[in-house]
């Protein structure tokens, strides 16, 4: 019920801004954006862009500055320095236009607990200037998308965490914004609820620009088309999951299990293959396990396999390591010193 595709109704006037500014292809664009709280450099000069159809995952340890960046983009906080545009509007000068064009789910999905779900969504429609004639359709659409039909007349504070998060998402979607900013949308949910939320995000992704933050690696792999890793207020990596994985030490390592009379001496042969940096061989039972680390460049698995076959070895098993995202994550964020940062 979450992933039903819904016809989109053209929402806000952001199209105009995009048309007026033909160079702009990115719906979110930041330039050296920063926010300090006294001595704490919560966001310390970050620049990135995100366009339509993109799900940009903001990845980083707690206290990295993800939420602060989102609060800057949504106009809740004003930047200490730098600029950013959302849908072509400046986040400081045209804050109200920015806020009209985006849907935002704040961290922990704060909601007016004493209100019933239906009354709350009606309030959001009013404040979002959805005309009375389109209101019912807009509300019905998000109710369906977020699977809220069973709890419409329940007070929000009596809902389970999963349902509250759905209300938070519904609230962000009522005006069918082209830009969605979701701060840890799956945090604190159980695995099934996490799955539901991810399905919804994927269903929305096609014609929107979504910025979401998380510290769950499997989540970015599953839903994000691009990943920005931030640490101590700075961007330390920006790319697709595959690109980031190439940064791992184990990326491209070839693992083989060989058998045959000359298997034990195969390692010398293999280190002659162009582009091979290191070969490690070890006998396991009647097989030899070989690990080949390439230097990159002119290395090819084809040459490697030919060398093995020329030694009359039999390849029992062969795999190429893709690398691990969590390794990258740890490598570039583990230098973070958490002292004094709550």
């Amino acid at each position: 019920m979450w992933s039903k595709s819904i016809q989109s109704q053209s929402p806000c006037q952001l199209a105009t801004a995009v048309l007026l500014n033909p160079i702009m292809t990115e719906l979110i664009q930041t330039h050296n954006l920063g926010r300090h709280f006294g001595d704490i450099k919560a966001v310390d000069g970050i620049s990135f862009g995100a366009g339509r159809g993109e799900v940009l995952g903001f990845l980083g340890p707690n206290g990295a500055g993800k939420s602060t960046t989102m609060k800057l983009l949504t106009g809740f906080l004003s930047p200490s320095f730098g600029t950013a545009t959302v849908a072509g509007f400046d986040i400081v000068e045209q804050s109200r236009d920015v806020r009209r064009c985006l849907g935002y789910l704040p961290e922990n999905a704060p909601l007016y607990g004493e209100m019933e779900v239906a009354a709350f969504l009606k309030f959001v429609c009013e404040i979002r200037k959805i005309e009375a004639s389109r209101r019912k359709a807009a509300i019905d659409t998000v109710i369906e998308r977020a699977g809220l039909s069973g709890v419409l007349h329940q007070k929000i504070e009596t809902l389970s965490k999963g349902y509250r998060r759905r209300v938070g998402l519904a609230q962000a979607l009522v005006h069918d914004p082209e830009i969605l900013i979701l701060d840890e949308p799956t945090d604190g949910l159980d695995p099934n609820q996490k799955h539901d939320v991810r399905e919804l995000i994927l269903a929305l992704a096609k014609d929107k620009c979504i910025l979401l933050s998380t510290h769950i690696l499997e989540e970015v792999e599953e839903v994000c088309s691009r990943i920005v890793i931030i640490s101590r207020g700075k961007i330390v990596a920006d790319g697709t999951a595959d690109e980031l994985r190439t940064r791992t030490a184990s990326h491209g390592v070839v693992k083989m299990r060989l058998s045959g009379a000359q298997a034990d001496s195969v390692d010398r042969e293999l280190s002659e293959v162009p582009g091979v940096k290191e070969v490690a061989a070890q006998r396991v039972g009647d097989e030899v396990a070989v690990l080949v680390t390439p230097t990159g460049g002119d290395f090819s698995v084809h040459n490697l396999v030919e060398a093995v076959i020329s030694k009359q070895c039999r390849i029992r098993d062969l795999s190429v390591e893709r690398g691990h995202l969590d390794e990258v994550f740890r490598a570039i964020t583990e230098t973070v010193d958490f002292s004094g940062r709550p």
Partner: peptide, 14 residues
């Protein structure tokens, strides 16, 4: 206290 202030002021309200 409930954080709804963040919701309120990220709506297009002054």
């Amino acid at each position: 206290k409930t954080g709804t202030i963040e919701l309120l002021f990220t709506f297009p309200v002054s």
